[in-house]
Design a protein around this nucleic acid. Sequence first.
DNA 1: TCTGGGGTCCTAGGACCC
DNA 2: TCTGGGGTCCTAGGACCC
Length: 403
Amino acid sequence: MQRVIFHIDVNSAFLSWSAVRLMQNGQSDIRLVPSVVAGDPSDRRSIITAASMPAKRLGIQTAQPVQQALRVCPELVIVRADWEWYKHCSRGFMAICRAYSTVLQQFSIDECFIDMSEPCATSAPVMLATQLKDEVHQRLGFTVNVGIGPNKLLAKMASDFEKPNRVHTLWADEVPGKMWPLGVRSLLWVGPKTEQQLVAQGTGTIGELACTPVEVLARAVGQRQAVLLHAYANGLDDSPVRTTPRVPKSYSAERTFPRDLVAPGDIDRALFRVACVVAHRIRRDGVSASTVSIFIKHSDFTVMRRQCQLQQPTSVTALILNAARHLLGSIWDGATPLRQVGLGVAKLSPTAEEPPSLFADPQLGYYREWDRRYDARAHRPEDARLMAYDRTAEDDEYAPNGL
DNA sequence: TCTGGGGTCCTAGGACCC
DNA sequence: TCTGGGGTCCTAGGACCC
């Protein structure tokens, strides 16, 4: 049986979803005017999470600072993200896709792969894809692109062709015509740095990449990536559509300040907050961590990080915070301005019931009680706001843009 | 009047063990 | 005693994705 994979991608997801919401409330369609989803426009550091087609035509892009976009287009419509609504839209979208094939891999909040080999044994792929696309539009009010290919890579490349509301195929025999003329940057896993390396080597298009020997590519990008990119450029990918969600390997939270900070008290407060958020999430998921890491970003965007191993895995906020404070002391002089502070945990294991120990820290009971109250509070929406940017405490199944 | 947040994976060097 | 190689763990940094 011929393998057929669909990649379905919501067009400008957050913007489309916000538009649907606003139109339900009788407002006009923001997709038709220059508009963006973004953070607080008065905050000089907030950036754009999603942009409408008219906004994109003005050169406004995702990840661009809002202030910069406003200079390009002063009448830009800015809407704030509505995460509960986005999750609702995502669930509806995934449910429709799942009705076409239960072999579904959710790739992010607004993208999925489905294995359509079986349905396509009896029906034309393009017909099924068009039907799926139209059904989403009709029932949920937003458009998607569907990419069809013999594997996940080509399906994903295909869904990225002309947008919005389109179906594209990228079969193996279409690779030379449709994919090889594209610049290397269009290929999955080729970012700005890799593009730079490849172009410097004279490899500008995916077609050139496809016929460059792996040994030559390896000189620019390393052996491992060379093998992968060479295969991708030739349209080869045998990775399966994974139906079971990944178990997280690490958790982290970070905070960029409205202004760079130097006061140790302010930095410590930020560290405390990120520790609360991360520890809450691992307790919610029933895991403990053995590695604690912190990272700081300076005014010039240079990043430093330090990590350490704990003697025992823990999910107790105070113990994680304690380790983080020690780490911070080892890399920050207490005077250099900091743009950002972050904290992560890794080496996760299921939280085990601890046997009572004579040597247990007498404070531990107090710490646990504190955590219990924090967790209870974090689930109440009115208190979630008080937790600064703790929005994801109830929602990090996904890692979308622009929190 | 630049540049958010949350992940995964890779690399390369050093420590340590066999 | 010296030399070498493989394996594993740890660490810091960096590239990439949405």
